[in-house]
Design a binder for these strands. Sequence first.
DNA 1: CACATATGATAGTATTACTATCACATTAAA
DNA 2: TTTAATGTGATAGTAATACTATCATATGTG
Lengths: 231, 231
Amino acid sequence: MELQLQIKMNPKLFLRDPEQSVLGRSIIQHSINMIHKIGFEDFTFKKLAQEIGTTEASIYRYFENKHRLLTYLLAWLWTWMEYQLVYHTNNVPSPEARIRLILKLLTFQLPDLFTFQHIDRSRLFQIAIMEGSKPYLTKHVTEDNKNHLFKPYKDLCARIAGIFIEYNPDYPYPRSLSSTLLEMVHYQYFFRNNLPSLTDFGKDKDYSGVNRFLEHLIFSALKNKGTLSKK
Amino acid sequence: MELQLQIKMNPKLFLRDPEQSVLGRSIIQHSINMIHKIGFEDFTFKKLAQEIGTTEASIYRYFENKHRLLTYLLAWLWTWMEYQLVYHTNNVPSPEARIRLILKLLTFQLPDLFTFQHIDRSRLFQIAIMEGSKPYLTKHVTEDNKNHLFKPYKDLCARIAGIFIEYNPDYPYPRSLSSTLLEMVHYQYFFRNNLPSLTDFGKDKDYSGVNRFLEHLIFSALKNKGTLSKK
DNA sequence: CACATATGATAGTATTACTATCACATTAAA
DNA sequence: TTTAATGTGATAGTAATACTATCATATGTG
């Protein structure tokens, strides 16, 4: 069985829906490859147009600018993540087990359910590590937020927070813990790869160190039910 | 008593030392104001030159580009933070008390020791919240790291990690916990101000919520000595 | 067949991110 | 005190970036 999932995106993210045309899908596909390869700062619509054999003007018909395109790509990833989360944790009664699954999902260690022809999720995941916070770390974050551009990210955060609360209904910071988890997955990966002295994973061959660290962090916080003693 | 501290910066961070001239200090002062006001993306050397009554070319004599200037400003802040940390935790024997002091320092709740005429630390702190990760979230992070541009940040991280280890010598992830703390101070502030649903601090008047969350998180992780039970 | 829509082709503008040159003022060295 | 070195201002210029506008053509739809 091969399922094909179409993720419905907020129309504010684009000028013309890239999923509805060959060119649009090509823009998505090649922008992922190119941002992954040269980084978001050096990525331009001109280079992208050359790469896919179209013109700058045509790309501007789909996306207002490259920042919006990046926001689109990451919104897609968060939506996809939430789908995955819901699917994988379905019928898993224990909140603890569900949290462990979330950790695995966020560190990209779960098999995928659907196929997408033009979206390379592995590269998109690498982009999230490197560029994941750039969509909202701007002066126009409030306006973008009003347009619900970050809704997928906030939904994912809220869903994880909800599971934290199931695990321990008294934990007072479920959403902050959830956003901490989401950010730190990427940051610890990034640090491990690029600034390893900021982490403790220097000699690991794989990324299981990040996983263990976060698992320990999350469960420690959630289990520590008492208020902080000022001992 | 009013102490004047001169922070010695890595010469790779600049072309000409901005501390050594009136124009240089003016560049530092006004770039802080301007980046704080309009954000790093919209900030240009041309605008800065107009603001301080000099020319673009003159600013390029001090800094290779605006990215380097931002890296400089944040390197300064991390160095300053480490000075503060050493001073404030001096003669405080209890690691627990020192950790609480670190939290207060990082959330900018400790009085300053030194005066700087041209550096507005409060604005610089705001810049760290918004732009703090941009110096290293680039494709040239490895090269910049080889030039030790991030040494102040890594030193601060290592020092905090050292105190974690004093508190609990068996804790396996001191550096990752330290970098998590450093990043999350800024992110939780940023989220609280701009994307509040990613946090639990919506109704607080001040920032003590961030402080309490991080304190709980850090001590929970450090206190949870046992390996994770797979219960 | 008429009409709307998507794309390509081309052009053009304002801004950004620099680099280069020369003149002048100040300071330091001979 | 002259000479030399240094820092700054003024001006110019270039390549790339980030767009916007216009028109022709192809393709599909009613």
